[in-house]
Amino acid sequence: MNLTLHVWRQKNAAARGRFVTYPASDVSPDMSFLEMLDVVNEALIAGGEDPIAFDHDCREGICGTCGMMIDGQAHGPRRATTACQLHMRTYRDGDEITIEPWRADAFPVVKDLVVDRSAFDRIVAAGGFITARTGSAPDGNAVPVPKAAADLAMDAAACIGCGACVAACPNASAMLFTAAKVSHLGLLPQGQPERHTRVRGMVAQMDAEGFGTCTNHFECEAACPKSISVRFIARMNRDYLVATLADRGEPASAEGGTG
């Protein structure tokens, strides 16, 4: 089939971008969306033009590197599917497709469809962990974890950090991403000691990065390639409230020694 693409081209973070139209010819329905872009790029290279830059790595829907707005939907029209797993049989001959980068001020464009998502890393660094120094762990079965809690924690932990939630949110909010990590760790017994500092730290960092706030549109859940539930957002809100109410101030030497 033959398609027409309208692609956002932007040379670098500082440059101004614009849409450029490209034909995509002889597209096979078995191709993935990214393989279709590969073919377009081969043609661009042959014609002496700069190929379209887009992020990708595993191409099997797990690393979270790929991500682009396809016809106004994060990762394209198929639910629970990353762009790399979207196949061209979704499209018909003659279709026009608009491709844009994730749009959020906290995710500045690096080039074309590539954005900088390091804000997510900083949110994790602000508390998205359980402090378990290597070598200090008790036996794996010392603390039983109810299966239901472990399963729910796994649902939250399935997040691939692709940023589709932010991209799809009308407010460019990172609540689903943050809530998934807060919930994953907060549901497990191992995560209890740091539960309050974790949620407060991560939310503070999330706000500082300049993401928007949640107004419960739930576009994030619909766009999430792992279908992570917005219930985790409610759970994080609850945790945050409790953490604020329960917080009796930190001891003066909270970080004693490790730094």
Partner: peptide, 16 residues
């Protein structure tokens, strides 16, 4: 929220 997305999308489809 408005500040969080300085440049908007040319196209957007809502689902939920």
């Amino acid at each position: 929220n408005v500040a969080a997305r300085g440049i908007g999308y040319r196209e957007r489809r809502n689902r939920e």
